[in-house]
Design a protein around this nucleic acid. Structure first.
Lengths: 213, 213
DNA sequence: CCCTGTGAAAAGGTTCACAGCA
DNA sequence: TGCTGTGAACCTTTTCACAGGG
């Protein structure tokens, strides 16, 4: 359908932030916004914001700014949010259930339609409207719900196995909360969020500050 | 104490990954490791790994590789893990409790010593060994436990307020799971992890793949 | 001869200044 | 005049090739 030239990954990572600000602006009744205002709201500087938006197209009006609703639609389209991308959660422990309980995902087009867990006492039951299935049912669940994204919340030991099964079931997009480096084929897009890594980066700078004294 | 020259942020963000691999290697009984092996384990290429390590010092032996335990100690020291950095969690809902329940943080030197919540039914109680306090007690809790890091897991509406209170209480390092851009003074280090942003980035590439067809 | 350490080149991102249109 | 869109300069990060010690 619509095709953009090469958009830098760094820009793509900022689009969701712009989109959220645009949704808020729209809800607040704003009809236009300047690059400077939107930049302030999203914590970037104005030229960077304009450059980012310019990769998507020329949606602004010189001397005026951007039409909030129009820009919101275009950013939303670029992000693929015209479609919904069903999600399966692998590993339905504390973190998995916290995600399932979080309403923001469904609102943004990522409904969590199923979970996989090895715990017999959970399988067959439903938590926060999410049905829990046995690992062996994964391929079937993926096909039935047209799952597009797998989220890995299993314990570390099980995370590579979960990734392998997701790939076998045909999933091409994985978000992992596992703290280890997972191996997947090149055609699979894998994003990793390791919560303790984030703390360790803060720890580095705390140490640096302590050493300066 | 020890002082390094300027280490790129990109390098710092990879150090926790190297450290985890080194801990695993050490536990597995390996005594030396080559840059290529360690690079494979951590998903980077060998020259990048060597360049990263070279910012910390010259810890390898040409023709041999790196001594696992020595390198592990050095990376660990660089990350400030000789110290422990106590953590307070603001907003003790599903996500906050999932983090508290996660043993990996304490193991890595980030003990969660307290939580703050507005819910009267939680205040004064303890979940997973973490005592819950009222917001007004934050400054006192920070001082008593020498809290170094605040983690924000509140609902969106409350997140900027939580950040403000953390800053007032003297906290200089914040990890936020809020999906909005928080404003803090320059001297405060703020890292943000927005879970739905990660899904939206996957959504962008799914859309891209769908459009190509 | 092996594998680390590193300058130099290439690529990727950000900033800037200003051209250009409303 | 005001604010967007963008080439060019600048900075950061990655890659590469190879010098150099064990």
């Amino acid at each position: 359908m619509r095709s953009y030239g090469h958009i830098p990954e760094a820009t793509i990572a900022r689009l969701p932030i712009y989109l959220r600000a645009l949704v808020d602006l729209s809800a607040g009744g704003a009809s236009t916004v300047s690059s400077e205002e939107l930049a302030d709201l999203t914590g970037v500087n104005a030229p960077k914001l304009r450059k980012d938006l310019s990769y998507l197209g020329t949606y602004g009006t010189r001397g005026v700014g951007y039409d909030v609703d129009y820009l919101r639609f275009e950013v939303s389209t670029a992000l693929g949010l015209a479609n919904t991308w069903p999600v399966v959660i692998c590993g339905f422990g504390n973190l998995g259930r916290a995600l399932a309980n979080h309403t923001g995902f469904t609102e943004r087009g990522f409904p969590i339609l199923a979970a996989i867990d090895t715990d017999r006492s959970k399988i067959g039951h439903t938590f926060d409207d999410v049905p829990v299935h046995a690992p062996g049912e994964l391929a079937d669940v993926v096909a039935r719900h047209k799952i597009a994204i797998g989220v890995i919340c299993t314990p570390v030991e099980a995370s590579q196995g979960a990734a392998d099964r997701l790939v076998s079931a045909g999933i091409r997009s994985i978000l992992s909360f596992s703290p280890i480096v997972l191996t997947v084929p090149d055609e699979v897009e894998l994003r990793s969020v390791d919560l303790s890594t984030q703390l360790q980066i803060l720890g580095f700078h705390l140490q640096e500050a302590a050493d300066e004294k």
